[in-house]
Simulated assay, not measured.
Amino acid sequence: MALKINGLGTANPPHSISQTRAAEFARTICCENEEQARLLGVLYRRSVVTRRYSVAIEAPITAEGDSRSESSLEFDRDNASNNHSVGVQSTVEQSLYPPATDPSDRGPTTAERMAFYERCAGPLAVEAATRGIENAGFEPAEITHLITVSCTGFSAPGVDLNLIRECELSPNVARTHIGFMGCHGAINALRVAQSFVDANASAKVLLCAVELCTLHQHYGWYPEQVVSNALFADGAAALVGSAGTEGETRLPSVVATGSTIIPDSTDQMSWLVRDHGFEMSLSALVPSIIEEKLRPWLCEWLAEQGLSPDEVRGWAIHPGGPRILRACEQALNLQRADLSASYDILRRYGNMSSPTVLFILEQLIQTDNALPCVMLAFGPGLSIEAALIR
């Protein structure tokens, strides 16, 4: 049975930062010399990202050179002698990331970062879920199953309890958590949601993915982490679904999901808990591996659904970065315009990990001729997760 998408909702923290300002801030925690500062600027400019939202930003400040009044950072250049980093001393309107004191400084501990997660993840998830339920036209008490998704923090009681309490769900709602699966976690959750409506045609499922990626900004000059610093952002997205038969309704529906592990690629990507935050590693070979391996598997999986890549009208591909999107273009013989929604979400919001594909889907289904749509995301393994929406 298909998972009918009754409603979607998205949310971001209240304050954001332009990529130009983010690069200036990053110099205070990453760079030890002018050459590193120059390279950092290049990486940030090449990211495609123009703005990101973060729970670490505690107040909006109008800063010269930032295009919106909710820009997040201001810099005090008068006290630069107190900072080993090149360029600027930040008086950032945030308390999580002080400037690095020396090259061995690794920033706040994981416990300090998780304190932010405990405080901020629940309210952001509630905002997205409230919108999703309202857009679905359901009463909160009608929700029978709750699926939460996150890979950027842990706490118990957790986000699921926040959602039950603040959204006024039934205390008897069946809870499931999809944890630490990375950027494709929302697709794993769609698979679980589809299984629930397969088993119970009266089920109404609330899926909510929330990620606070900016809690894991890394100190020091480690190129893989600098790239992650340039891309990661915070956001939440919710989907409300129920049972539906393909073709019986005008509402888009998840009709199939697929998954595969690329052989001999385990060491190409990781997401690990460390003493000073969670650490992302991403080999420079990942785009070339995707370019080589994606199409054969996807063609086989789509053929099982009676489709070929040429018949897909909408592509909701997780923007792990511009190189990942370009690899997908090459692998699937697509034009940049075919991935315009993915590029647009990356540009306006950054890489929010698991909620990102739902942001893209929300944009796509508001346009004509976006179905059938294929959702794709990649994660440690290397793994590929896919969903087909008709």
Rank of each mutant, 00 (worst) to 15 (best):
L3I: 04
T10P: 09
P13V: 00
S16Q: 08
Q19E: 01
T20E: 07
A22V: 01
C30D: 02
Q36E: 14
G41I: 00
Y44S: 04
R45F: 01
S47V: 01
T50S: 05
R52A: 06
S54L: 08
V55M: 11
V55H: 06
D66Y: 02
S67N: 09
S72R: 03
D76S: 13
S81C: 05
V86A: 11
G87D: 04
V88W: 04
V88N: 04
Q89H: 12
Q89S: 13
V92E: 07
S95I: 00
Y97W: 08
P98K: 00
P99R: 00
P103E: 00
S104C: 05
R106C: 12
G107Y: 03
A111Y: 06
E112W: 02
R113S: 02
M114L: 15
E118C: 07
L124T: 01
V126M: 12
E127L: 12
A129F: 12
I133Q: 13
E134T: 11
G137S: 11
P140T: 00
P140K: 00
T144Y: 07
L146S: 08
L146K: 09
L146F: 10
V149E: 09
F154Y: 15
S155R: 07
S155C: 14
V159I: 14
L161P: 03
E168H: 13
P171N: 02
R175E: 06
T176E: 10
H177G: 03
H177K: 04
A186K: 09
I187S: 12
A189R: 04
L190D: 06
V192Y: 06
A193P: 14
A193G: 11
N200H: 08
A203K: 12
L207Y: 05
C208T: 14
L215P: 03
L215V: 02
H216E: 03
W221N: 05
N229T: 01
N229P: 13
A230K: 02
A233Q: 09
A236M: 11
L239S: 10
P252N: 02
S253M: 13
A256P: 08
A256Y: 05
T257P: 07
T257N: 07
G258M: 11
T260Q: 12
P263F: 01
P263E: 03
D264H: 14
Q268K: 14
D275S: 09
H276W: 06
H276T: 05
H276R: 12
M280Y: 10
S283A: 12
S288W: 03
I289G: 11
E292N: 13
P296Y: 01
P296R: 03
W297S: 07
C299N: 14
Q305V: 04
L307T: 00
S308D: 13
S308V: 10
S308I: 07
I317Y: 05
P322A: 04
R326D: 09
A327H: 10
E329C: 15
E329Q: 15
Q330V: 01
A331E: 14
L332F: 09
L332N: 10
N333H: 13
L334R: 11
A337M: 14
D338I: 01
A341S: 15
S342Y: 04
Y343V: 03
R348T: 09
Y349I: 07
G350N: 02
N351W: 05
P355T: 00
L358A: 06
I360K: 06
I360C: 09
L361Q: 08
Q363G: 12
Q366N: 15
A377K: 09
A377H: 08
F378Y: 15
F378S: 10
F378I: 10
G381T: 01
I389H: 12
I389L: 15
